[in-house]
């Protein structure tokens, strides 16, 4: 399983965050295809075009916020596994993520937090 090529979409308005997630994911799965989007609206377009397997989604972004973007994506493509990756660690956001069928992972982006996201993608929970 881990050797198959998967497509991951990273949605975050911070370039540094995208870089960090990409680096940690690539260290573990160098063969994965990684696409980046800097906003929720951009993510919706990319999902229609490329239909990734997995997606990490920031919450606070200009325009469409991450949880709303995730809700729209999951309605249209219920097979995509989404991790809400946010600095906003309040209970209300965690339960919103759970209600959507997504996993919540708190920032900062570290090897550990990325591993949590990958665990969810690979169906370890």
């Amino acid at each position: 399983m881990p050797n198959t090529i998967k497509t991951l979409l990273i949605v975050d308005d911070s370039r540094v965050s995208r870089m960090m997630i990409r680096t940690f994911v690539h260290a573990k799965y160098p063969q994965w295809i990684i696409i980046e989007a800097a906003s929720g609206n951009e993510a919706l377009q990319i999902v229609d075009r490329d239909t990734p397997n997995y997606c990490t989604m920031d919450i606070n972004m200009p325009g469409l916020i991450g949880t709303d973007a995730a809700a729209q994506i999951l309605t249209k493509y219920p097979g995509i596994r989404i991790v809400i990756f946010s600095a906003n660690i309040q209970e209300s956001h965690q339960s919103r993520a759970a209600a959507l069928g997504a996993k919540f992972v708190g920032k900062p982006v570290t090897e550990k937090s990325v591993a949590q996201a990958l665990g969810f993608f690979e169906g370890k929970e």
Partner: peptide
Amino acid sequence: LQIDGLTEVFNIGAGRAAASLSEIVCDE
């Protein structure tokens, strides 16, 4: 890029602060 990095660092701090404040006010 430096501004982006710094903003992200502070956003994470703000997220933690918000979590502490929400415990005090019992609201989001």
